[in-house]
Design a protein around this nucleic acid. Structure first.
Length: 462
DNA sequence: GGAACTCGCCAC
DNA sequence: AAACGTGGCGAGTTCC
């Protein structure tokens, strides 16, 4: 696919953006190579130990019996054959291209063979060692890595990063986070600072759709879309998000319903994710199942009082929630979606608020997601450009060093921190809305600060 | 022996 | 009726 800017204002943004990003690439990110080397050795030994442990099992000997000298526990192709052909286990899901049984984490967890846990553990450690620490070392030069930030590779006009990819360093898995991010440091006496746009894709959904309900959700600090959805999905009149059990319901609604729905998913998939979150099985429910509620009851008992006693009944309920979500709660957004898709089908291309054009054959979900994703990134990019401008004009010692779609990573001189923070806020709250009159909601950033001379592991704020 | 593919997995 | 968007990258495998 050919990716180009296509209008004058889009071209200008890419032009300025490339230059600002190139300056960040040139600065680079400080890396502790000694740590990487030591940690790689440590992980290698750990992996060797797990491999030895595996080799001492019946499961492995069986594998060896089939593959002989070619036996390779890192081969998912071999593993798929062993499990699904040889041991005749019924595969619960197939791989993406659909020809063999899947051997990903979700699939292996469903199979009751203890050796598979060891394989998963090896996979996780190998990923950390090879994809992250190994790549950091390979790319390190004089104590710095210089990841590329590309603006010409992505269909949605977002960015990508490579050599190494700075945009996928582990964060969710706390162990992986600690090991990988411990390698990256600020310059001596400086601190790493990360400025994240708050819910930027929701903001852009407001800009495109002008949906009043959605706008109210992001403007009104007391309202909470995910909590409201949790109430509706799990049928509660009241939920307090500060109660841990309620916080889980809110997270479930957010991650297994709201986000997937905006990406184009449907209730039949969402219901599985929701059941996972609240630990309910995909079958009939009995008393005492699932997560515990603050009053000591379990979620299955609560739903039972609402007439929902099985996964199937819950699915039916969720179908109603989905219908209400699009035809009632966010009906203006839904109308925009329909009109937006119709317009693309008439013209054969779509044009973003920032002037970028996407053409080619697209499905419904792509037509809806591209403008949101692309334009959200353009807010980040313009902010990056303006920060870079201020930095050079005022000769900051602080440096811009990277970007992850909706966040900017800086290497900050502590004496300049207050000023940098003020400048960033001024850009997103005042300059951006003044520049782009289609911004109809308040943009905001959250700032995370890491300690002076400390790695990228744990922010000392927020 | 390298290119191109699949699979799995990390991020937003 | 159908049904989750965007990337990069390592290892294994297959093709030429």
């Amino acid at each position: 696919m050919k990716i180009e800017a296509t209008t004058a204002k889009a071209y200008q943004l890419v032009h300025d953006g490339i230059l600002a990003l190139a300056r960040a690439e040139r600065q680079g990110i400080r890396i502790d190579t000694e740590y990487c080397e030591q940690k790689i050795q440590h992980l290698t030994r750990k992996i060797q130990y797990l491999e030895k442990k595996l080799e001492d099992t019946k499961f492995y000997r069986h594998w060896q019996h089939i593959y002989g000298r070619k036996t390779n526990i890192h081969s998912n192709h071999q593993l798929s054959r062993i499990l699904y052909k040889d041991m005749k286990i019924e595969p619960l899901k197939m791989t993406g291209k659909g020809v063999q049984g899947a051997t990903d984490e979700a699939a292996l967890e469903q199979i009751n063979i203890p050796e598979l846990k060891t394989i998963l553990e090896i996979r996780k450690l190998a990923k950390i060692k090879d994809t992250y620490l190994g790549a950091f070392l390979r790319e390190a030069s004089d104590g710095y890595i210089h990841p590329f930030f590309n603006l010409h590779t992505v269909k949605t006009h977002r960015s990508s990063s490579s050599c190494p990819n700075f945009q996928n360093v582990p964060k969710r898995d706390k162990e992986a986070l600690k090991i990988c991010r411990r390698a990256l440091f600020p310059r001596p006496g400086h601190m790493l600072v990360e400025a994240d746009f708050s819910s930027i894709e929701v903001m852009l959904s407001c800009c495109y759709s002008k949906d009043p309900t959605m706008i109210n959700y992001v403007k009104n600090k007391k309202s909470d879309m995910h909590l409201d959805m949790a109430k509706q999905i799990f049928i509660f009149d009241k939920l307090d998000k500060n109660v841990p059990a309620h916080a889980i319901l809110r997270q479930a609604a957010k991650n297994a319903f709201v986000f997937p729905q905006f990406y184009g998913d449907y209730y039949g998939n969402n219901v599985k994710g929701l059941a996972d979150w609240v630990k309910l099985p995909q079958s009939r429910w009995k008393s005492g199942m699932g997560v515990e509620l603050p009053d000591g009851r379990y979620i299955s008992d609560h739903l039972s009082t609402q007439g929902i006693r099985s996964f199937d009944k819950f699915t039916e309920h969720l179908k109603g929630v989905e219908n209400d979500f699009w035809n009632n709660r966010f009906k203006v957004y839904n109308a925009w979606r329909k009109a937006w898709v119709a317009e693309y089908r008439k013209k054969g291309y779509l044009k973003m608020l920032t002037g970028f054009i996407c053409s080619g054959i697209m499905g419904k979900n792509e037509i809806m997601n591209y403008p949101i994703q692309g334009t959200a990134f353009h807010c980040l990019l313009k902010t990056f450009i303006l920060l870079d401008e201020a930095m050079r004009k005022e000769q900051w010692d602080t440096k811009l060093i990277g970007q992850i779609h909706d966040s900017i990573i800086m290497d900050v001189n502590p004496n300049e921190f207050e000023h940098v923070q003020l400048t960033a806020h001024k850009i997103v709250k005042e300059e951006l809305p003044a520049l782009w009159n289609w911004i109809n909601v308040p943009l905001n950033i959250e700032i995370d600060v890491y300690g002076v001379d400390q790695s990228w592991v744990k922010p000392i704020t927020s």
